[in-house]
Design a protein around this nucleic acid. Sequence first.
DNA 1: TCCTGTTTTAAACAAACGTTTAAATTTTAA
DNA 2: TTAAAATTTAAACGTTTGTTTAAAACAGGA
Lengths: 207, 207
Amino acid sequence: MRCSPSKNTEERIREAARQVFLEKGFDGTTSRDIAEAAGINIALTNYYFRSKEKLFISIFDELIQLFFEGMFCILNKPIGLREKITELVEHDFQLMKSNPSLCIFVMNEIHRNPERMANAVEARKQFQQSVFDEQLRREAALGHIRSIEAMHLMVMIVSNIQFLFISKAMHIRIWHMSEEAFDAFANRHKGIVIDMITNYLFAFESV
Amino acid sequence: MRCSPSKNTEERIREAARQVFLEKGFDGTTSRDIAEAAGINIALTNYYFRSKEKLFISIFDELIQLFFEGMFCILNKPIGLREKITELVEHDFQLMKSNPSLCIFVMNEIHRNPERMANAVEARKQFQQSVFDEQLRREAALGHIRSIEAMHLMVMIVSNIQFLFISKAMHIRIWHMSEEAFDAFANRHKGIVIDMITNYLFAFESV
DNA sequence: TCCTGTTTTAAACAAACGTTTAAATTTTAA
DNA sequence: TTAAAATTTAAACGTTTGTTTAAAACAGGA
């Protein structure tokens, strides 16, 4: 009993909730949706988690961590700027490709309910403590790159990748695209974005 | 009686619905929310519009048009590319600044319910018939700019602007920003984005 | 004035919502 | 084997949901 044998049921609820919340959002999800997706009785969601809200927070915190952890990890790598930027783009792209609803879900839930971003302080600290900021200043002082604040560069990187997937449904609808056609487009766009950003950073003296 | 004297009430409902839907999304909005915001009886929303869904579609179509019309207008202007790109960025920025919830609302509703993008064909036609595509090819053939598909360039422009406002709530939360601080950041970022994109397009031979 | 059609209201509707109950079932440890 | 604990179930709880009803209030023309 100690090391709960209910892990199975609890984890099944978590997985079902993760899927349904990501797909429909908090407001669009009902307790019965989750129970049905998990193949369990409705009452069990409130037996393991105490309410729909508490279950959501648990899932949301997990997804927020997934959303950030990889990026922070790369920011602290002891590698060159050019390589680091490429890695940041590639990682973000892969994360979005593997979890197409993640970004719009996170943005939407925070937009509608900002206090859900409870770990904001944690994210800020991790970003401030990273090597990235100092690395940018050093390279700029040496004249290797254009001088730019870390925040602007980060927003640049994630904007160009994440918006692709935020607007995916719209693109597919407007351009009569198949999933494969969109993937191909997104891949090409990723390459262009890497070019554009590195070009902006490194090829600034040619003017 | 002919030319309905109820225009007042109907428009009051529309305005209230627009505000509440933008703020809370379709799922998060109740009929009573709208009635209360409009200061009218609940039954009136179904008297003028036949259901919550029909009222939403009416508002949504109006917002989709607001979302696109300005952009299409600029795309067809008889002006140079550099100026056109700057105008596209500035217009998008102003639109997002005036309607901070518009973008995430549109993206979210289409993501959750793609068939709501009923006017997709219309948007595609307007884009395809615009001068922009041809303009890009001409300038590229003349060697004035780097060769790039119109779609990639458009996505570039809107990504960098719209994502700013999609992630606004998150930024404000993470960085303890005031509205004013965010506005200042966004303004600086807009300038950087214009530099980056024009630099990518026009300064490509310096390599 | 009274009549006709429009607009607004309070009240109610059935259905769906998140949640709880209390009993049934299964698991655990002695 | 047995009794206590943990898990699962069907059923119901009181609210809130979108929507409808039927009557009231209001308008303009005869």
